[in-house]
Design a protein around this nucleic acid. Structure first.
Lengths: 237, 237
DNA sequence: AAGTGGTCTAGACCACATG
DNA sequence: ATGTGGTCTAGACCACTTC
């Protein structure tokens, strides 16, 4: 570890150690539940004082990345839900939490060269992956999902069976979501969506737009339509 | 500061210092923008090492309570918005942030014995305060606010002029919101709301329901209607 | 020049978990 | 008994702001 920062103030040692651990988690070298090297080991590895290692690991714990147990060790924390605040959880989990049965119908699962898809993912060039899926709760349609997926982040997306696992679950399982951006609208659905959601004419939709990032890439961009009569968002702050 | 924790591990010194500062902010002895005593001063005051004070203040900065400027000093951070995640900020601030003019029209400001009001605030008995206000952005109606307020928490609520300051701002100014619960719906407005929001027949509303707690009391329960064509919610996680 | 916060060290004592 | 993390000290050097 560079003890005396040369010039331009590179990065403090504790910050370098944090990034080193984060990089190992992102690369998969460290998985949830794995033991992270102890403070003593890192002191030797990086050639710094124990307080410095301690600060790095303590901050990673405060950020929810690690769990530390006195007397035992430091562990990689289990994967976080995308959001504990605005509970846009996996629709299948939500339905299961209500004790109901979730089913899904895949309308489309394809590669797309649409400029809107390429733009939504902030790609330089196509193709983008595209899926359209209707989710049912106890047989009633509750969500129409129109999703674009970055092939660089999820190269095997098209080979999945999304009647068995939701795209959301698949992606959360493979890559840690680092940032999400959402917008919520009340909107009248077009005829296509209205039909698939079995909605009355004139009934509004709750429309949720969301883009999520993995690293520097937009991993996915999704539009979720929900019939207003059967769905709302809720949460606590 | 008790250097050797007696027994039962009372509280680490850095934690005691954090609470001391927080208590001063809560009591009003320290206000947003005020200078907090420097590390050197606190070292003398509490009789601890500088690293200990440093940690306390650093953590308070990470929690958004303090701002620290190298070479200058430590300052009490301005009051936080209710939520940085789901940006349900003061509507007046949002409008101002867009460089637009906010105006408000107070339709009602009264004491109410309605059972629904009493129930919404989880009160044992009435009365509850009640207000109905329409908010305008550049003269266009953008939010219909129907609010119940707990008289125990805000006894002077009825005496305010809500054309000058929004209820939200008034309440955030007087009491720190500790918890909020929200639900978001897409809903067709009733004739009354539709008229006040100057909406077309058939246009949906984005309806936001929110209850906020101060201590153990429900401080306020509010329903906010927004015309779908002119409003959406947005945020990042 | 003086004061501030940012970082780091090389020790130390402790509570706790695990074998 | 050993190793882990949790805390703390008494110094130090530095970058930065303010006067």
């Amino acid at each position: 570890m560079q003890n005396k920062p040369a010039r331009g103030t590179p990065l403090p040692a504790y910050e370098q150690i944090k990034r080193h651990v984060l990089a190992q988690i992102e690369s998969g070298a460290l998985k949830p539940g794995d033991v992270v090297p102890s403070e003593t080991e890192m002191v030797k590895e990086f050639g710094v004082a124990r307080m410095t290692v301690s600060r790095a690991l303590r901050e990673l714990m405060a950020e929810g990345v690690l769990n530390r147990v006195r007397g035992s060790g430091t562990y990689v924390a289990p994967r976080q839900y995308e959001s504990t605040v605005l509970q846009i959880r996996n629709i299948a989990d939500e339905i299961a939490a209500r004790g109901h049965r979730h089913t899904a119908r895949v309308l489309a699962l394809e590669s797309s060269e649409e400029p809107t898809a390429v733009a939504a993912l902030e790609l330089d060039a196509g193709p983008a992956f595209h899926s359209r899926i209707v989710h049912y709760e106890e047989g009633e349609p509750i969500q129409y999902e129109d999703r674009y997926v970055n092939p660089e982040v999820f190269p095997d997306y098209l080979a999945q069976d999304f009647t068995l696992e939701t795209p959301n679950n698949y992606m959360v399982r493979l890559a840690p979501i680092q940032r999400a951006e959402f917008r919520i609208y009340a909107q009248k659905p077009d005829a296509h969506v209205r039909q698939h959601l079995a909605m009355e004419i004139g009934e509004p939709c709750l429309l949720l737009l969301r883009r999520t990032w993995v690293g520097k890439h937009v991993a996915t961009s999704v539009r979720l339509w929900h019939p207003a009569s059967r769905f709302h968002l809720a949460g606590t702050v």
